[in-house]
Structures are given as structure tokens and as C-alpha cells.
Amino acid sequence: MAKRVEDLTVTANRRLNREYFVLELSSAGPLPEMRPGQFAQVRVEGSSTTFLRRPVSIHDFDPVENKIKLLVQIVGKGTEALSGLKSGDLLNMVYPLGNSFSLPGRGEKALLAGGGCGIAPLLFLSRYLAANGFEPDILLGFRNKERILESGEYEKFGRVFLTTEDGSAGEKGFLTEHPVLLSGKYDIVYCCGPEPMMKAVASICKEQDIRCEVSLEQLMGCGIGACLCCVVDTVKGNLCTCTDGPVFNVNDLKW
């Protein structure tokens, strides 16, 4: 999977709520092969305070439509600037970067668990698993009803379970309290979200002897393993989130 630097064309910019938006991008030529869990380093033009690229998960990739989607949370000046992109604008990306989630074994049952913006890479993973003959269960956690992101999209590829902290939709409580996660019927759990949530999911999986892969987010410089800034302390020493990750088996992390 060769990495490339390319200007992609924004085909849609859909605001989900105050904090989140989805960029839909395409290119004249065929997009490269990509795997769920991979990310793009996105260039934010025109500001001296957004000097470095921003790492963003590939939210969805549809090779037939030749489109990719990025789900972005506005957290600072860079993502704020990206939120203003309009259909027809160009976005310079270095992609596809990083490793990917592993496929389950034949006949294995998978659960995808995502919280908040952490659901981003799981839509592509759901699509990918469905395309490869798996029927994933998908557990999504949000703070409240207003903050639910794209849950309808996930329903195309698996059975969706929703939780909200205030009970305004789905089960009330934290994702980590949901019976589906505690059921112990899965062979592998794929998780992405805030670090405390991922740690809690990892610990539940360890207790149940279930394989667990998490997608980490670290401050990143280059995204291609050259600057060694985005390291994570693992049982194998300092590893780069951008090239050795972003997906890690929790057994390799010092959690």
C-alpha cells in the first residue's frame, strides 16, 4: 500500500452538530487501497499557527464510489479551519498511513466499541468486516442524544447498540457498563475513544480473555515514522503511533 501526497477534492462538508463535521473527499484518479484503522495527515493551509499536518482517521472508504470520509471534531485552530472547507475545495493529504485493525478469524464474533470521536475509524471497519462476511456488533457511546454521531451509517453493516450517559437515547450509562460488552460472547473487541474508556474496555477484555485492539491518538509530527515524536511506551519499548500503530493489541501496551 503505497503512501502518497495528494490534493483531494471536497465533495461535501456535512455539519453534524456544534462540534463535529464529516468531510467527504474524492479524487480524479482511483483512490489507493486502504485498510480500516489507517489515517491521513491533513494539511491546514494559510496559518502560521497550524504549521504541522493534522492526523485524522479514515472514517469511511468506499472504493466503488471512490470516496473517503473524515469525521472531525473541532478541537483547535486547525480543525476549526478544516470545518470551513466547501464543496470543490482541495485538501492536501498524506495517506494512507499507519497499520490497521486485524481481521477476526473465520467464524469469530467481533464487537466494535467506540466513544465520541473515537467512533471515527469504526465505520470503515464495520464496512470492511461486513464485506468480508462478518456480522459485527457495534457499541457506540455518547454523552447525550444531541451528541450521537452517524449511528444510522453503522446500522448498514451490523447490529448497533447505543448508550448515552444521561439516558436520552439508548441505554443509560457508560459504554463500559453495557451488557453487550460484559456478555463475554465475543472473540475480539475493537475499540477507539477517550483513553480512560479504552483502558476500561481493555481491562474488561483481559478479564474475559478476549483479544482487544485499540486505536491510539498521540500528538504527531510527520505521520511516517521519521520524527519519533508520537511514541507510546509499550512492552517492546517506545513505538511510533504513526507507523507501529495507531492500532495496538492491548497486551503490548503498559495499561
Partner: peptide, 23 residues
Amino acid sequence: REGNPYPRMAETPSGMLNTVGLQ
């Protein structure tokens, strides 16, 4: 050398700070 602990990088106006520590 394992280098320095995370965080090793900070974005600054028109530049960046790093403290990789020769990993």
C-alpha cells in the same frame, strides 16, 4: 537509547519544538 518520555513535540508559530532525545 529509548529517548525521552512523551510528549516529545509541541507545535509553535511557524515551527515546532521537539525533545526526542536521540532514540
